[in-house]
Write a protein that binds this DNA or RNA. Structure first.
Length: 490
RNA sequence: GGGCCCGUAGCUCAGUGGUAGAGCAUCUGCCUUUUAAGCAGGAGGUCGGAGGUUCGAUCCCUCCCGGGCUCACCA
């Protein structure tokens, strides 16, 4: 770094501002490479980017500069640049420059800008990890000395993005996934809304919250764990379809699938049920994927996933039977506990029947569900906000979508009976008193809203980060979140 | 929180109970179509931190910090 600061001072002494105000860019690296034709009129371009490699050969210098779209080689020649050529010695890998010149093809065939003039746009005083690469005879990109330290990649994502181009592609895809979802939902006439992140009572999911404090009101507030209860209030208020894409916060462990803050889509549609929502969901994800990946069959790890609808629909108890050989339907809590033990699934003594079933399911069934699967019809105790099943009062009309063993969506026919809702909340309060820290609190205002009448409604939640993982073939959530949560650096 | 593993030069990594090495980056010199440019030479390190064992610790032990994988917890 010391050396680079000296170079910086030297540039200033020569009357060169190492941090000027603008540069007239009129072309991008990959577009030049695509548009160049050998027998065309000379093509004059003005490109800007970061120096990623530099090969000095006395009175000629080759360098690759990287802009937002890719890389292009530039060629500096003493003949052409005169005294300005000598200033090149003050430039390093990592510096940002702008060049103007004519595009040509070198002896070895690479499309290159012959620099007629150039300008320093930002001197980098901190050295960049230098990643070298070569294209072999088969056209494969071989990377030497890759920048792979995960801690540094996540803490200094800006460096990761500079030197690992495939990382950038993941986040470009992520943006496209989210904008495609918006376009599709908007085209169906759904209204995008924003609901509170700071909530006096947290609800809509079972999870522990982050707590914060409002000074003026001198009261604790919670960062939301879900948007659900507010969005349903809007259905009560007369919107037919509302959705929100935003961050939820859950104060729990972090691992390959979980980050304390994560992005959720929630969608509520009046006069529909979960059957309608299944069809909508498979079509939505199919269409989003097509726009992003241009094929319905995608790779995830060693698996090929076919997102073409219709997806398999299977009742939870049927899947349990298929993968464990046990029929759990209608069993008491004690019986379930015995079955869990027999199957080798550890269950805490604090949890109730619903959660025991959930445990067995996530451990023995879910990992086997690779192709997109709607798991439907959950036990009522697990789902205090879902409507009872029309054919079986012990179940609710709920589905989750599992892809590659990952739960990606959760949806119900929404409970709109205010009396039943109160009973379900009271059951939750009982579990809470028993020591279940994630059980829900009673939200009186939400019940009051239901008392005014909510139409039959279907609701859907999609974990956007997990969806992005699947559509970009990334194994950990940290690789689809730009700045994943880390312990602070010392 | 438990288990296993990791932390050595800017980056990627070797290594040994006698205070360190490679490749690339960097610096000097040569080089006007190179591309992992090349050739010659040079510099660069509190071996994550603090203790301990030892004549002597980067190496062995303990604790701490940070990270990875995994299990648990958890959607």
């Amino acid at each position: 770094m010391k050396r680079r600061i000296e170079e910086l001072e030297e540039l200033k002494k020569l009357g060169i501002n190492p941090y000027p105000y603008e540069f007239p860019v009129n072309a991008y690296s990959v577009e030049i490479l695509q548009n160049f034709k050998d027998d065309d009129q000379p093509m004059n371009v003005s490109v800007a980017g970061r120096i990623m490699s530099i090969r000095r050969m006395g009175k000629a210098t080759f360098s690759h500069i990287q802009d937002s779209k890719g890389k292009i080689q530039v060629y500096f020649k003493k003949d052409v640049l005169g005294d300005k050529y000598d200033i090149l010695r003050l430039l390093d890998i990592g510096d940002i420059i702008g060049v103007k010149g004519e595009v040509f093809r070198t002896k070895t065939g690479e499309i290159t800008v012959k620099v007629e003039d150039y300008q320093v746009l930002a001197k980098a005083i901190r050295p960049l990890p230098v990643v070298k690469e070569k294209i072999d005879e088969r056209g494969n990109r071989i990377v030497y000395d890759p920048f792979t330290d995960k801690e540094m990649r996540y803490r200094q994502r800006y460096v990761d993005l500079i030197v690992n181009p495939e990382v950038k592609q993941v986040f470009i895809k992520r943006a496209k996934i989210i904008s495609s979802i918006r376009e599709i939902l908007d085209s169906h006439g759904f209204i995008e809304v924003e609901t509170p992140i700071l909530q006096p009572i947290y609800g809509g999911a079972t999870a522990r919250p982050f707590v914060t404090h409002h000074n003026a009101l001198d009261m604790d507030l919670y960062l939301r764990i879900a948007d659900e209860l507010y969005l349903k209030r809007l259905i009560v208020g007369g919107f037919d379809g509302v959705y929100e894409i935003g961050k939820d916060f859950r104060n729990e462990g972090m691992d390959r699938m979980h980050n304390p803050e994560f992005t959720m889509l929630e969608l509520y549609v009046a006069y529909k049920d979960y059957n309608w929502m299944m069809e909508f969901t498979e079509n939505l994800i199919y269409e989003v994927n097509l726009r992003v990946n241009e094929t319905p069959k995608i790779k995830f790890g060693d698996n090929e996933i076919d997102l073409t609808p219709p997806w398999r629909r299977a009742p939870m108890f049927e899947l349990l039977k298929q993968y464990t050989g046990e029929n759990l339907e209608g069993k008491s809590e004690d019986e379930l506990r015995a079955i869990a033990t027999r199957l080798g699934v550890d269950v805490s003594s604090k949890i109730g029947a619903g959660k025991i079933i959930d445990e067995i399911f996530s451990e023995l069934v879910q990992p086997n569900l690779i192709q997109p699967t709607f798991v439907i019809d959950y036990p009522v105790e697990m789902s205090p906000l879902a409507k009872r099943h029309r054919n079986n009062p012990r179940l609710v009309e709920r589905f989750e979508v599992v892809i590659c063993g990952m739960e990606v969506c959760n949806a119900f026919s929404e409970l709109n009976d205010p009396i039943d809702q109160r009973l379900r909340f009271e059951e939750q309060a009982r579990l809470r008193a028993q020591g279940d820290e994630e059980a829900m609190a009673i939200d009186e205002d939400f019940i009051r809203a239901l008392e005014y009448g909510m139409p039959p409604t279907a609701g859907l939640g999609i974990g956007i980060d997990r969806l992005v993982m699947i559509l970009t073939n990334q194994r950990t959530i940290r690789d689809v979140i730009l700045f994943p949560h880390m312990r602070p650096e010392k």
